[in-house]
């Protein structure tokens, strides 16, 4: 039986195919369905609404231009779209390191991901596996990885946040990521 998630995904795949054929109505629908997710993603990293407005516009222009590159056999549509948005936001935040999110606490703390893999049965199998592997990391390492991922924090920003020297952060990141890679490969 198809879950709501499967239906949502199928709808997005269909819309992406139409957008690839320059269907403007499909593009508007795609925007309606995904803009909040993408806006949330870039705002969390950029911490600045004006910048987020610019970046999200560029993301959707890129989506319009590149929708034909999307391959539903390789990635889910929302993953593909979110990756575009994260990359653009990360490029932007690194270009203007002074506008990092730590200056904008009002954007709010990251809603902590639930790290009990059994807590939410509706999530995908991949997510369950990833969460299981993340929960095998000790708390500090897990937070370092998640803060980098969700907030776009550089090693230097992480160093301040976790009160550790930059080389230590790098080491912790590498150990955590190697551990994740191993865990996910099992």
């Amino acid at each position: 039986m198809l879950s709501a998630e499967d239906i949502g995904r199928a709808r997005l795949v269909e819309l992406m195919a139409k957008v690839a054929n320059k269907d403007r109505a499909a593009f508007r629908e795609l925007y309606r369905l995904t803009s909040a997710k993408l806006y949330g993603t870039v705002l969390r990293i950029l911490g600045d609404k004006d910048l987020a407005n610019d970046v999200i516009q560029e993301c959707f222009i890129k989506i319009w231009d590149r929708a034909g590159d999307f391959d539903p056999t390789i990635a889910s549509p929302i993953t593909w779209l979110a990756t575009i948005a994260r990359n653009r936001a990360l490029d932007e935040v690194r270009r203007k390191p002074t506008a990092a999110l730590e200056d904008h606490p009002e954007i709010g703390e990251l809603a902590a991901p639930m790290l009990d893999p059994l807590a939410d049965k509706a999530r995908s199998e991949e997510l369950r596996r990833l969460l299981a592997c993340l929960s095998a990391l000790d708390e500090e390492k897990r937070q370092i990885v998640l803060q980098a991922y969700y907030r776009g924090m550089s090693r230097e920003a992480l160093s301040k946040r976790f009160d550790r020297p930059v080389p230590t952060i790098k080491t912790l990141l590498h150990r955590s990521l190697a551990q994740l890679r191993l865990c996910l490969a099992q």
Binding site: S35, A36, L38, Y39, T79, R86, L127
Partner: peptide, 20 residues
């Protein structure tokens, strides 16, 4: 691909009117 499921946790934030 390994990390992309994390994107599911990002809560949506309504984009400002007028962007589209």
């Amino acid at each position: 691909r390994r990390l992309s499921p994390l994107a599911e946790f990002v809560p949506g934030v309504g984009a400002p009117e007028g962007l589209l």
